[in-house]
Design a protein around this nucleic acid. Structure first.
Length: 931
DNA sequence: TCCCGCTCGTA
DNA sequence: GTACGAGCGGGAT
């Protein structure tokens, strides 16, 4: 998976506004303040930021301003810029507005005392070069042309005439390449900046001299060869001035960056601050582009169309009015019709698809048909696997499945045709089974998740309702429900066409609406760099499945059953009679009423709590029944949820268990796993760990497990910028021991355990009450520990404060890769809801960044393994911070090396972390032995 | 037959 | 205190 190259745009704000002032009419804003230059500047920024995600558009952006009139150049030459006239009166009030405008776009505005804008720009260009990024300087300043470098992808953009300035342009202007521009400028001098240069030497002569002799020093050294007497004299007399000029025009490029490169990531333009600014200034024409009610799909791809529909943070957009005409849908049952649809998709360059099957589980499902949509209301359904509803109904006439798939394959794999689906992973797996590798693709479910996690459901029907106020035909209404439910292959073709074609139709319209929002709302980075490629990565994993030893599980089930029965007897004996142990209501009654035990805690529903903490307490007080119930619960849980359920999940064809990973299952960006959930296989207790031993490798293979060590704490150290924690991770120290030392001044079993709890509490959005409860200490002590933590690691407090301030203002958080999670409850009036949202918001950037990282590793894994000649190593499962592989015996070491390096480098090159990512690798015949 | 709350397995 | 999914009991339907 090739990483899209970062592209930094550096806007030379000061020089822009001078030029805009002179070239644009003298407008005033709503307050009567001159604002012509600001208006031009605003329009320009808009245009630039709109280029996000377009070819050669910015991924990172900053506006650079001159902070001070003095720089190191004044120390070299006191006359530097000395005869520059003061800015015109009606330009002066516009300077601060430039900063306001930049902030309105949520673009970083960088200025540094003692450094001129040109120098700051040079520093960033060099840093971008070192990082392998491209950079574009938005300016036409000739001094900056020294930085142009075609090979490194460094160019300039003059937005006044939309001209790219590259090496060829520089050569055209100066007659020499960028590396010699400084020498030419030194000879020429500059009257505006008061760079002296050499009298009598203008651009022509300067160029000629540098072309002839190579550089300024050589010109001055060869002055004897110069034939023109006046020129010779001037060069001789003003040699020192020339050398001074050379230094004056030399750009400083090694100063520390005021803001790290990564912080300049362009994440789209949050609409609200911009709207406020435009309203305040009374920039009506720009405001109309934001404030109109045009939907995103009404032609415009600019962020403004989208911003229009997003009136406030965390407020879902107004639905767009659409008309769905299902009568236009076509049932395709002839080759001619199929060919026509394929040609149409080709002509459009994109097609929405949806596969219909006889079963919700795509691993075992059979294809019933495929729907296509090329335009709103222009959709078809191609049945290929329909059968009669019962023995009395005949199988409908339809094209042969193989023929349809053979004809669709070139289209679905055509690099020039974008395939769009909702929950493409399902269709991807279905089609992969037919030997079709769908590409390129977009997934509207993933798009919706990347835009609206935390504030929307992402089902197609939900989204149709939300975005279009349209009710899709319910699956229930075509297939029925419950015992009378039929599979889709039994649905009559007319009803099937309406249902299936509508899904493709709605999916296409949804894509039209969501696609521009990704760019406008900063979703494209995470979508393109993390989640979109993951669809295929996960699809492959799901198809592989993992081998499970059925006989072993059956044996375990038997053992558990015997032990459960024995425990049941003992419980009844202790309780003085039989009851349903699995019923918390009955258990509570038995313990606190029949046995008359004290201290029963009741929950919201007025029912006694019988959870593990309560039963542990009773057991500690010597209540046999409580201890016995705990043992009974453990075994029942293991048997019903794991040993029994897992056997039933083994696919008869493959002998393996194929989980389904949900890409939109967790609001933080984590995956979730269902049917079965393979992300909660026991490991903590010895007896539970036996379940893990049931997950085995094929003969001749081993299972290899690689997991990130302490990844969330490492990310917290990086994100909150905690020097001690970062240093400890770099040094490979025991992080909890180090925390214990900081918090309690001593390290032993007890303090280290407490410190560990505190460290986790931090990640979960700490509260004194919660920490006290967990540590079993009074609330005040919990608070004291937290206060101490914050005073030892002030970065943590700042991180929490900043995160909360951001989420309160914007309604969402972001991970380091830009993933948004929305928190509508952050402003809830109910304090419990609000506090809960706050804790989740503190956790989301950390948990989410961790999820982004492992997803990036997964996307790169197969390629890296193949490149290392390890094409038979198969990635099977992801468990949040762990990846599990099936490895041919003999390739363990080589595989471990590749896996470790891909995981450790998952942040790069988009991001450089201040902490190393440690990966622990182990392998064995079964999962339990791989840790 | 469906849905909710409880409990408990994981990171 | 974060993030999930599954099985069970039990009441509503």
């Amino acid at each position: 998976m090739a990483e899209p190259q970062n592209h930094l745009y550096l806007v030379d704000g000061s020089s822009y506004i001078f030029r805009a002032y002179h070239r644009l009419p003298p407008l005033t804003n709503r307050h009567g303040t001159p604002a012509g230059a600001v208006y031009g500047y605003t329009a320009m920024l808009w245009k630039l930021a709109d280029g996000l995600n377009k070819a050669d558009g910015p991924t990172h952006m900053a506006v650079i301003l001159d902070a001070s009139s003095k720089s190191h150049r004044n120390a070299m030459y006191d006359q530097y810029k000395a005869n520059r006239p003061p800015p015109p009166d009606d330009l002066v009030p516009q300077f601060p507005l430039i900063r306001t405008a930049t902030r309105a776009f949520s673009i970083p505005c960088i200025e540094e005392e003692g450094l001129e804008a040109d120098d700051i720009i040079a520093c960033y260009v060099m840093a971008a070069k070192r990082a392998g990024w491209k950079a574009t300087i938005v300016s036409s300043d000739k001094d900056l042309m020294q930085l142009v470098d075609d090979e490194a992808g460094i160019d300039m953009l003059d937005t006044m005439n939309d001209r790219r300035i590259d090496r060829a342009y520089v050569e055209g202007k100066f007659g020499v390449g960028p590396e010699k521009v400084g020498d030419v400028l030194a000879l020429m001098g500059d009257s505006v900046d008061n760079v002296p240069g050499v009298p009598g030497v203008g651009p022509k002569t300067a160029t000629q001299l540098i072309q002839q002799y190579g550089d300024l020093d050589k010109v001055l050294a060869s002055v004897g060869e110069i034939s023109k007497p006046k020129l010779k004299q001037n060069l001789t007399e003003h040699a020192d001035n020339a050398r001074l000029s050379r230094e004056l025009v030399r750009l400083v490029c090694d100063a520390p960056l005021p803001e790290p490169l990564e912080d300049l990531a362009l994440k789209g333009i949050p609409p609200e601050p911009l709207r406020e600014f435009l309203e305040d200034q009374g920039f009506k024409s720009l405001l109309n582009r934001v404030g109109g009610s045009r939907g995103a799909s009404s032609g415009g791809n600019s962020p403004v169309d989208v911003m229009a529909s997003r009136p406030a943070p965390s407020t879902p957009a107004e639905p767009e009015k659409i008309t769905v005409d299902r009568t236009q849908y076509e049932t395709v049952t002839s080759e001619e019709a199929l060919d026509r649809w394929i040609a149409e998709a080709r002509a459009r360059g994109l097609v929405a698809i949806d596969t219909e099957t006889d079963c919700i589980d795509c691993i075992i499902a059979n294809l019933a048909g495929i729907s296509l949509a090329t335009e709103p209301n222009r959709a078809c359904y191609i049945p290929v696997g329909h059968i009669g509803q019962d023995m009395l109904t005949e199988t409908p006439v339809q094209l042969a499945k193989d023929l349809v798939l053979a004809k669709l394959k070139p289209l679905l794999e055509d690099p020039a045709v974008l395939k769009i689906a909702h929950n493409l992973k399902y269709d991807w797996v279905m089609l992969a089974k037919a030997g079709i590798a769908v590409a390129p693709y977009d997934d509207t479910l993933v798009m919706s998740f990347d835009l609206d996690a935390g504030r929307s459901n992402h089902g197609l029907d939900d989204l149709a309702k939300q975005h279009f106020d349209h009710e899709c035909i319910a699956f229930k209404s075509v297939c029925g429900t419950g015992a009378k439910q039929i599979s889709f292959d039994k649905v009559p073709l007319d009803a099937a066409t309406e249902y299936a074609a509508e899904d493709a139709d709605i999916c296409l319209r949804l894509w039209q609406r969501l696609k521009p929002r990704l760019a406008a709302e900063g979703g494209n980075r995470v979508y393109e760099m993390v989640d979109r490629p993951l669809v295929a990565s996960i699809g492959k994993m799901e198809r592989r499945g993992i081998k499970v030893d059925r006989d072993y599980l059956a044996q375990l089930s038997g053992t558990f059953a015997t032990e459960i029965a024995a425990l049941e007897e003992k419980v009844f004996e202790a309780a003085g009679g039989p009851f349903t142990i699995g019923s918390p209501a009955q258990l509570g009654h038995v313990l606190y009423e029949r046995l008359g035990l004290k201290g029963g805690r009741k929950g919201k529903s007025g029912q006694y709590s019988t959870d593990v903490t309560e039963l542990e307490r009773l057991a500690g007080e010597g209540v046999d029944a409580a201890r016995l119930v705990l043992d009974w619960r453990q075994l029942s849980k293991l048997k019903s949820t794991y040993t029994d359920a897992l056997q039933a999940q083994i696919n008869p064809d493959t002998g393996r268990v194929h989980t389904s990973f949900s890409l939109s299952g967790a609001q933080t960006g984590r995956l979730s796993s269902t049917e079965p959930n393979l992300q909660n296989i026991p490991i903590r207790t010895e007896i539970g760990r036996k379940i893990r031993d049931a997950f085995v490798a094929e003969p001749g293979h081993v299972l290899l497990s690689a997991d990130y060590s302490q990844i969330e704490l490492r990310l917290a150290a990086h994100m909150a910028d905690v020097p001690q924690l970062k240093e400890a991770f770099r040094a490979g120290e025991d992080i909890h021991a180090m925390t214990a030392e900081e918090l309690f001044g001593t390290v032993d079993r007890d303090t280290r355990g407490k410190a560990k709890t505190v460290n986790f509490a931090i990640l979960y959005g700490i509260s004194s009450w919660g920490l006290a409860g967990r540590l079993g200490i009074p609330r005040e002590e919990g608070k004291a520990i937290i206060d101490r933590y914050f005073s030892r690691f002030p970065g943590i407090r700042t991180y929490i404060d900043d995160t909360l301030a951001f989420v309160r203002e914007h309604g969402f958080t972001r991970t380091l890769f830009g993933r948004k999670t929305h928190f509508p409850n952050i402003r809830a009036s109910n304090p419990n809801f609000r506090a809960s949202a706050e804790r989740a918001a503190i956790n989301a950037p950390i948990q989410g960044t961790s999820a982004d990282l492992i997803k990036r590793a997964m996307n790169r894994m197969d390629g890296a393994l193949a490149e290392a000649g390890l094409g038979d190593v198969r990635m099977l499962l992801q468990v949040h911070d762990e990846l599990l592989f099936e490895v041919p015996q003999g390739q363990e070491d080589a595989a471990a090396k590749v896996v470790r390096s891909v995981m450790a480098a998952a942040a790069e090159p988009a991001l450089t972390l201040d902490v190393p990512l440690d990966v622990e690798v182990g392998w064995g015949a079964h999962w339990g032995a791989a840790h």
